[in-house]
């Protein structure tokens, strides 16, 4: 590239404002060494920006300078670098040392570029990690919810007042089982429908309590495929029950049980 083309490209201005990529930066530094006109133009641009920054200067608190000077004075690591003004001849050893240092410098530049890429990579990974953390937090929230309802279920099962009543399969579903937890102190009736058969979507399972020889509606059992089936559900409360039974009824329930559609039945031990 000709010096004039470099100057008019606008790249020197981007370089001076810190906007060039690593590759462009290296390229421009090479150009500046190759072409004195480019170096002069770059210097003029930098001077312009320097004045611009000086025009927008803000005086810091006077204490800052003291802190800076105190810190550089206590810094034991700083070493005096002897300055070579170039007048002396260079011994062969130093030539090799200089060559070695150039190689070192280049390899360090390569390492820097690769580290820079790694940093970018790491930043990306961090983003992904943060995203998956957010989704984990969401599922943790969900789990808290299901844990709460499981605790409730366990409370029903473990209560000293709960009397378990096993309803065994009869008639249309000989393998079905349902468990009732009947709270003796409050009369509340809970059912665990885990082992009840699935019913067509236009049908629903209905619980009946047989009181004084007559079936009384005890509520509809939710068996829809939304996970509800496996949760212990609260039904209607009863003080006195001879037996519990479940029948398959039309969706929403029936006023009286369809006797030939009975699934399970069981009696409390008392």
């Amino acid at each position: 590239m000709q010096a004039n083309d470099i100057i008019s490209s606008g790249l020197l201005e981007l370089y001076a404002t810190g906007l060039t990529s690593k590759e462009e930066t290296i390229q421009i530094e090479q150009w500046a060494k190759l072409h004195p006109e480019v170096a002069a133009e770059l210097s003029a641009i930098e001077k312009g920006l320097e004045s611009y920054a000086q025009a927008h200067a803000i005086q810091p608190a006077p204490s800052v300078k003291g802190k800076v000077l105190a810190q550089i004075n206590t810094d034991k690591k700083t070493t005096i670098i002897p300055f070579n003004n170039g007048a002396r001849s260079v011994a062969p050893f130093w030539k090799y040392a200089a060559a070695a240092s150039v190689i070192l410098f280049i390899s360090s530049a390569i390492i820097n570029v690769s580290l820079y890429n790694k940093v970018n990579e790491t930043a990306k990974n961090l983003d992904q990690t943060q995203q998956s953390l957010a989704s984990l937090q969401q599922s943790n929230e969900d789990m808290k919810g299901s844990n709460e309802s499981m605790k409730q279920d366990m409370g029903v099962v473990q209560s000293k007042y709960s009397e378990p009543v096993v309803l065994n399969g009869i008639g249309v579903a000989p393998n079905a089982v349902a468990k009732i937890f009947w709270m003796k102190n409050t009369g509340e009736v809970y059912i665990d429908p885990s082992n009840l058969p699935d019913v067509p979507s236009d049908k629903q399972l209905q619980l009946w309590a047989i009181v004084d020889g007559k079936p009384v509606d005890a509520g509809m059992i939710v068996t829809a495929n939304n996970g509800q089936k496996f949760k212990i559900q609260k039904m209607k409360s009863f003080g006195k029950v001879d037996a519990f039974a479940i029948t398959i009824e039309k969706k929403g329930g029936s006023p009286a049980p369809t006797m030939d559609q009975m699934v399970v039945m069981g009696k409390p031990t008392l």
């Binding site: 320097e50 920054a53 000086q54 200067a57 803000i58 005086q59």
Partner: peptide, 15 residues
Amino acid sequence: FSYLYDNYAPALNGV
């Protein structure tokens, strides 16, 4: 270094 600070600290601080 002290001279450097006096002459450039305000401009850098502005940035």
